[in-house]
Computed example of a mutant assay.
Amino acid sequence: MAQVKIYYEPEMELLTVFWQAPRKNQIATELGDGIILIKDSTTGEPIGIEILSYKPGDNRFDTVNVEMGRLATV
């Protein structure tokens, strides 16, 4: 099963989402509207995104609900 890692830094208003492990050789490309695409610099494969000036309820990311806290294991 794939793991998605989501990091939210409220003081910096920065939301980072990785669907692959971060790389030492990653590069970033701004897509516009404060959205940054993170790619592996060797393969060019997208591995994550960052959203600048993010606050919960941000309409640029309105289909995902970000909640702080730990998930309960069943």
Rank of each mutant, 00 (worst) to 15 (best):
N59S: 14
F61C: 01
I36Q: 09
S53N: 15
D62C: 02
T73V: 13
S53R: 15
I49F: 06
G44M: 09
I27D: 11
Q26G: 10
E11L: 11
E45G: 06
Y54H: 04
M12F: 03
P22F: 06
P22R: 01
W19L: 07
G57Y: 06
P10I: 03
V74G: 12
Y54N: 05
V66Y: 04
S41G: 15
N65A: 11
F18E: 07
A21D: 15
A21S: 15
F18T: 09
D58T: 01
K24N: 14
R23D: 14
V66K: 01
D62T: 05
K39L: 05
I47V: 04
E13P: 01
K39C: 08
Q3D: 10
Y8M: 02
P10R: 01
V4D: 02
E30F: 05
I51V: 14
L31N: 02
Y7W: 03
Y54Q: 01
T42D: 12
N59H: 12
L15M: 03
G32R: 05
A28W: 04
V17L: 10
E45M: 11
K5H: 04
L14D: 03
I51Q: 03
T42H: 07
I6L: 08
P46Y: 05
I47A: 04
A2W: 00
V4N: 10
L52H: 12
Q3H: 10
L31Q: 11
L15H: 04
E67V: 14
V4L: 11
G32T: 08
R60D: 00
G34M: 01
T16S: 13
P22S: 08
T29V: 13
L31H: 00
K39H: 01
A28I: 08
T43W: 07
P56D: 01
T43L: 02
S41M: 09
G48F: 04
I27A: 14
Q20A: 15
E30S: 13
N59A: 11
K39T: 09
Q3K: 13
A2T: 04
L37H: 04
T29C: 06
G69M: 08
L37G: 06
I36C: 05
N65W: 09
I47M: 07
K24P: 09
E45I: 14
I51R: 00
T63V: 07
G48W: 03
Q3N: 12
S41Q: 13
L37C: 10
S41I: 05
E13K: 13
Y54M: 05
V4A: 08
A28T: 12
P10T: 03
K55P: 02
V64P: 09
N65G: 08
F61K: 00
I36R: 12
V4E: 10
P46A: 09
E11C: 00
G48Y: 04
I6M: 06
Q26H: 11
L14K: 06
F61Q: 02
N25Q: 15
W19N: 08
G32D: 08
Q26K: 12
R23Q: 15
Q26F: 07
I47E: 06
R23K: 15
S41T: 06
P56I: 00
P56L: 05
L31M: 13
T63D: 14
L71R: 13
E45H: 11
I51A: 03
D62K: 09
L71S: 10
K5E: 09
Y54W: 00
Y8Q: 06
T16A: 08
T43E: 07
V4R: 13
K55A: 01
